[in-house]
């Protein structure tokens, strides 16, 4: 069962929501991540997402299985965009159906948090001034100093 997928076109949420339907479900919670027009003080014009898909799909299926087991929800799914996205586009969608709302919200939160931390997906921001940068990569790319022999010999 494919519970996670990448998409290079707009995410069809109505269709995805149908895959979570279950006679035992009393409700459905979802999260949509949208492309916003600013980040860390810079005006963002568009985004590019790139993924290591083979590894990301395996890891995402693990995350979803963990969420189902941990919160006892009925079904869960996630779709993440790759390619170029404009302001307001949906970058990621998570949906969870369950008997009761509490587990649905918790499982949904768990999945989006883990997806952000664990999946090999990268985001390049393009700024209004023409610059661009890979989020979390560019500013931390400083060589760490090396520990040398700590004392002189005389």
């Amino acid at each position: 069962m494919n519970t996670f997928a990448f998409s290079n076109a707009a995410i069809d949420i109505a269709a995805l929501q149908q895959t979570l339907r279950d006679p035992a479900a009393g409700g459905y919670a979802s999260f949509e991540g949208w492309v916003r027009n600013h980040n860390e003080g810079l005006q963002v014009t568009r985004l590019e997402y790139e993924a290591f898909e083979a590894l990301a799909i395996k890891e995402a299926d693990l995350i979803i299985a963990e969420a189902i087991k941990k919160y006892g929800v009925l079904r869960a799914a996630c779709v993440h965009r790759v390619g170029t996205l404009e302001i307001g586009d949906i970058a990621v969608w998570v949906g969870v159906s369950s008997a009761h709302r509490d587990e649905a919200f918790k499982a949904c939160r768990y999945i989006i948090d883990e997806v952000k931390h664990r999946l090999p997906i990268w985001k390049k921001e393009h700024y209004i001034n023409g610059d661009s940068g890979w989020v979390n990569c560019e500013r931390c790319a400083e060589a760490s100093h090396q520990l040398g022999h700590a004392h002189l010999h005389r």
Partner: peptide, 9 residues
């Protein structure tokens, strides 16, 4: 493959 700091979502 080497995996730089990720930024999904």
């Amino acid at each position: 493959a080497f995996i730089p700091p990720v930024a999904g979502g």
